[in-house]
Design a binder for these strands. Structure first.
Ligand SMILES: [Mn+2]
Ligand SMILES: [Mn+2]
Ligand SMILES: [Zn+2]
Ligand SMILES: [Zn+2]
Lengths: 148, 148
DNA sequence: ATTCTACTTAGTAATTATTATAAACTGGGG
DNA sequence: CCCCAGTTTATAATAATTACTAAGTAGAAT
């Protein structure tokens, strides 16, 4: 994600007030590349400002998405959507067991649909998700099988 | 999706009773390649059997997913997850405006992560989603701009 | 610095999606 | 035809998100 200063200036440019709550949420987001859920952001928020409401977290995340500096990603299985603080074009590697989600920064420019495949759609971008099992979960699954 | 007969035999092989409710849901699924939501399946169900409960639809869809003949897909923006009656490996083309989701049956075998990119994950598969605007929505958006 | 106001927040309620529970029902083997 | 494990339904509970509104405040204007 961009630096805190960049994000603050985006807010200013869009005439959004820089409240302590918004500032805290931005600070948390720039430090968290784990694709957190709304609730994970909220839990971090209330360790610092215990009175912030969930509504404020929802509002702020939605505003950042509307401004294009935050992306919503879907994750099979986990509760609720997750937010991606890396708004640049990139791809993902998901552990199907614990849902840890890593960024893959490489580009895959060779992915192009033929006109007949595209069916008249005007294609803007593509996104690849690799599914697998992370090293931690491989170990956990292996020792689980042993104990059977 | 497989034929109705194939699905019925999968149920039989797994000692699941073929009830009128399940049969109807299967009939609906084999005819619907639109990646419907739970509610869209339910709405079709109750036009034929008005007393079927949502729980039965949820249960049946989950059972089919467990049997591997139905896939859950995530769709940014639309309400709830969607079900994919095409359980084979394939990719998707999503209209970011109306969320129409088309299957792309081509394979992309060249998509491989290097060991360093894979970070120790044991990778099982990958899935590509192309994002764009479908012809209908292109027209709608164009005429909308005209009227401004 | 003080005032003012439109924007923001917190708290609560409402909505929506999904899962849990348990009593009544039934497909299909025997 | 009987029977019972599996299934369905209705209802309640849980979870995720959105709506609403009175109270609070950031930042511009004075
Ligand atoms: Mn990412
Ligand atoms: Mn599909
Ligand atoms: Zn894992
Ligand atoms: Zn469309």
């Amino acid at each position: 994600m961009e630096s805190l200063e960049t994000l603050l200036s985006v807010l200013r440019q869009n005439h959004l007030k820089i409240t302590p709550q918004r500032r805290l949420i931005l600070e948390i987001l720039v430090d968290d590349a784990s694709h957190p859920t709304v609730d994970q952001v909220y839990q971090q928020v209330i360790t610092v400002m215990p009175n912030v409401s969930r509504t404020t977290v929802y509002n702020t995340l939605h505003e950042l998405v509307a401004l294009g500096v935050l992306i919503e990603v879907q994750d099979m299985g986990a509760g609720g959507g997750r937010y991606d603080t890396n708004a640049s074009q990139h791809h993902h590697l998901l552990c199907t067991h614990c849902h840890t989600l890593l960024d893959i920064e490489r580009d895959f420019p060779e992915l192009e649909l033929t006109p007949v495949e595209a069916c008249g759609y005007r294609i803007a971008r593509h996104q690849v998700t690799f599914y697998g099992v992370c090293p931690c979960c491989q170990q956990a699954l292996a020792s689980q099988e042993e104990s059977i």
